[in-house]
Design a protein around this nucleic acid. Structure first.
Lengths: 192, 192
DNA sequence: CCAAGTGATGGCACTGTGTGTCATAAGGAG
DNA sequence: CTCCTTATGACACACAGTGCCATCACTTGG
C-alpha cells in the first residue's frame, strides 16, 4: 500500500494548520499549503474538496456516530432523553481526543469563512439526529425541532467544557445546559 | 437603458432571482446577472460583497430589529419570555411582507452554498439576541444558550408558518413550538 | 452659460479558488 | 520484465473577488 511518500493527507492538514495559525486563514493560499506538504496545488484538491475542508477532515464521521448512538438507546426512552444520552456519550468520547484541537478552534474562530463552514458541519449533525429520531418513531416535525435544540445544547455544552479546561466532565456540562433550559421553559415561559 | 438608470440594486436582485430559479445558483455567473440588469460585473460587486449576498440583501436589518424588540420588553420579564415575545412580534411583521419570498426560499434550499450563508444570517440574529439579553442583565452564558434556543424556535416556527400557508398565525406557530419544547423538557428530560 | 466637483459606472489587470484533461512515475501482480 | 493500477504533476480554463484609473452624468458655483 505504500505510495510515493505516505501520509500526504496528514502532511497537508499539518501544513495548513501551521500556516493558518501563523498567517491567518485568508493570507494563506492553497499553493503554499501544498508546497509545504511537498505536493502541488492540484493534489490538495484531490484530498479536500475545498480550502476550508482541510480543517474539518474526519468530521463526516460525527453524524453517523451520533445517529447510531441515538438508535442504540432503549426504544422506550423519550426522544429528547435519547438524544441527550447519545450526545453525552459521543461527546465524551470526542472530548478525549482533543489533542491540538485548541489551535484549530482558534483558527476557526478567527475566520468568518471557517465559522460558516463549521455551522454546516453542525447542521449535518442536526440532520442525522432528526433522521435517527424519525426512525425511532418520533413524528418528523418534533424530531426536527428536538434535533436542532439538542445540537444547540451539544454545542453549548462543548464550549462550556472547553472553557472549564478539564475541571468538569462533559456529561456535567450537558446536565448544566439541560437544567438551564428546563428551568427557562418551566418557570413561566409563555405563561400568558 | 441609459447609464444612469435608478434602481440598479433592485434590478440586480431581480435578475439574480430569475436566473437562479431558471438555471440554478451554480450555473449562473455574476457576469450574466449583471448583464441582465444592464450593468457590468464590476458594478455587481459594488452593491453586494459576494454572489451569495444578492439573495440576502436587507437581512442586516433583522438583528438590530430583534435586539431592540428584546430590549423593549418590560424589564421584569424572564429572559426566555422576553426573547419569545420579541421574536413573535418581529416575526409577525416579517411574515406580512413575504411577497415572492417563496421562490427565494426554493433557490436557497437548492444550493448548499446558499444554505450555508443563510445559517450565518441566523447566527447574526442569535448574536444580537445574546447581546440584548446581556444588556437586560442576563448572565452571558445563559444569554448565549437562550439566544441559540430562541433562534431555533424562531426558525422552526417560521418554517411551520410557511408550510401552513397562512392558515395559522405566526404567534400560534411560536406557541406550538414552545409547547413542544416545554413538554420535552418537563416530561422527564434527564430525570435520571 | 460654462467650469469644477461629485458620484456611479466601465474597463482592465491581477490574484486565488476550483476543475477537467492528459501525461508520467512509482509500485505491485503475473 | 511487462502490464496494470494509482497517485501525482503539468497545463489550461472558468469564475469569484479586488484594486486602480478613466469616463460619463449630473450638480453646483461663478
Amino acid at each position: 500500500m505504500a505510495r510515493w511518500d505516505p501520509g500526504a493527507e496528514e502532511r497537508l492538514k499539518k501544513a495548513a494548520l501551521e500556516l493558518f495559525t501563523e498567517h491567518g486563514y485568508d493570507n494563506v493560499t492553497v499553493t503554499r499549503i501544498a508546497e509545504r506538504a511537498g505536493l502541488t496545488r492540484r493534489s490538495f484538491f484531490r484530498y479536500f474538496p475545498d480550502k476550508r475542508e482541510v480543517l474539518f477532515a474526519g468530521s463526516e464521521q460525527l453524524p453517523p456516530a451520533v445517529a447510531s448512538a441515538v438508535l442504540a438507546v432503549a426504544p422506550g426512552v423519550a426522544p429528547l432523553d435519547a438524544v441527550l444520552d447519545a450526545l453525552t456519550s459521543v461527546g465524551t468520547r470526542l472530548a478525549e481526543r482533543v489533542d491540538g484541537g485548541r489551535t484549530r478552534r482558534a483558527v476557526i474562530a478567527a475566520s468568518a469563512e471557517l465559522r460558516e463552514r463549521e455551522r454546516t458541519k453542525f447542521a449535518a449533525v442536526t440532520a442525522a439526529i432528526r433522521d435517527a429520531l424519525v426512525r425511532r418513531g418520533t413524528d418528523p416535525d418534533t424530531a426536527a425541532l428536538l434535533a436542532r435544540t439538542a445540537t444547540v445544547a451539544f454545542r453549548h455544552a462543548f464550549e462550556r467544557w472547553t472553557e472549564s479546561d478539564g475541571r468538569t466532565s462533559f456529561a456535567e456540562c450537558v446536565d448544566a445546559v439541560v437544567a438551564t433550559l428546563r428551568d427557562a421553559f418551566t418557570t413561566r415561559a409563555r405563561a400568558d
